[in-house]
Design a protein around this nucleic acid. Structure first.
Length: 390
DNA sequence: TCGCCTTTGAAGACA
DNA sequence: TGTCTTCAAAGGCGA
């Protein structure tokens, strides 16, 4: 598991993100990626025998056309902001043109050596974006149309909020002293494999993307009700996507409802105590971003199968690509901690029905279901491990 | 209507 | 300290 060792003892940046990998050169990674590509092509050829190529291409084309206009509008509106977006140089799926239609509203990064380090700077990161965009989603190539407009109304001083502070959030600038050198240590495990319960074909590996295909799946975390409704309002008055109705499944936002209108659920009428969800980790952020692409490419809808594909792609990412999501996840946690200082992951324990223990034991040989166990089982090279920072 | 599936990572619980 | 468990997203599917 990627861990970050800040040496400072704080939790947020204490044990995540920083990864130690095999000392693989970029050249090796490129070769590996080329191998994936070649295998993709081979798999794709074979898979096309069984799958409806026409449907796949047609569906993808239809979806792309459906979002072209929207993306073009945002491209014009926020083109100047793109300069601040971290650009990937591998020429893969993260080429900037692929997300040219998305707004990037870079926030001051308190972690960067030259970034703002004052508490004020930290507060900036939680300010609601003009279009109701989650402050952190602005760092991701999420489509702005995912989110409903919402006036910025965050308190100027987050530290004044009530609640028990889990950590010294006032000095978050000291968290995650991630450096470019540290990021460079992050590398994917190229030999990651897993047996797929779901049939996986070429979609299981990375491919080049020429367009971003936002879908409703990307919006749910920022549901309309959360952005505008009182049920999704933090006691401080801060709307945050982590606050969701306790009904379980998150509701689609306004944008999504415009696509697939449906009547208001009955449960909306009954005000219930909102549930603060866990902040998304790096892989979850990656899934939210890439799910639509996988769905469009593979014409899959089952999340279980999609997640398998995304898991394989995740391991195929370069260290820089993964580092981007680790960074975003770190900021997600930081923001979450600032917004809900008294929240604990324990609060949501028991929200979901616990799986039967015997079932988990059957699914995993060692009983531990995580990346580290997977790596060990597969005799893979060094897994993602804590990386010393500075 | 609810839980399962499936993935990785973070965090809490426990021995 | 190490191991294990739970939850986070997502949508189809079965009970």
């Amino acid at each position: 598991m990627p861990q970050l060792n800040t040496g400072g003892g704080d939790d947020l940046g204490a044990n995540d993100e920083m990864i130690s990998f095999k000392d693989e050169g970029e050249q090796d990674e490129k070769i590996q990626e080329n191998a994936f590509t070649e295998r993709d092509l081979a798999d794709l050829k074979s898979s096309l025998v069984n799958e409806s190529e026409i449907n796949q291409n047609t569906n993808a084309a239809v979806v792309r056309r459906g979002h072209q206009d929207e993306q073009r509008v945002y491209a014009e509106k926020h083109r100047e902001l793109l300069d601040d977006v971290p650009k990937h140089q591998d020429g893969g799926m993260y080429k900037t043109p692929a997300y040219s239609g998305y707004p990037f509203l870079m926030l001051p990064d308190p972690y960067l050596p030259n970034g703002p380090v004052s508490p004020t700077a930290n507060k900036v990161s939680v300010v609601q974006q003009p279009h109701g965009v989650h402050p952190l989603t602005s760092l991701l190539p999420y489509s702005n149309e995912h989110f409903s407009p919402s006036p910025p109304h965050l308190p100027a001083d987050m530290s004044q909020k009530t609640g028990v502070h889990r950590h010294q959030s006032q000095d978050l600038s000291t968290f995650y002293p991630l450096t470019p050198g540290g990021v460079s240590q992050i590398t994917p495990s190229m030999s990651w494999q897993s047996q797929s319960v779901y049939p996986l074909h070429s979609c299981g590996f990375r491919q080049s993307y020429t367009s971003s295909l936002p879908s409703s799946s990307s919006y749910s975390r920022f549901s309309h009700s959360l952005m505008l409704g009182s049920s999704g309002m933090h006691p401080t008055g801060i709307p945050h996507p982590a606050i969701v109705p306790p009904s379980g499944k998150q509701e689609h936002d306004q944008f999504d409802r415009n696509i697939k209108p449906h009547p208001e659920p009955k449960r909306d009428r009954e005000p219930k105590k909102p549930v603060i969800k866990k902040p998304l980790n790096a892989f979850m952020l990656y899934m939210k971003e890439m799910r639509a692409k996988v769905i469009a490419e593979c014409t899959l809808k089952e999340s279980a199968a999609i997640n398998q594909i995304l898991g394989r792609r995740w391991h195929a990412l370069t260290r820089e690509e993964q580092a981007k999501y680790y960074e975003l996840a770190r900021k997600e946690r930081q923001l979450h901690m600032q917004l809900y200082p008294s929240w604990s992951a324990r609060d949501n324990y028991g929200k979901k029905k616990r799986r039967k223990r015997e079932k988990q034991q059957d699914s995993t040989t060692g009983g531990k279901r995580n990346a580290f166990a997977t790596f060990k089982e597969d005799s893979a090279p060094a897994p993602i491990l804590p990386m010393e920072v500075l």
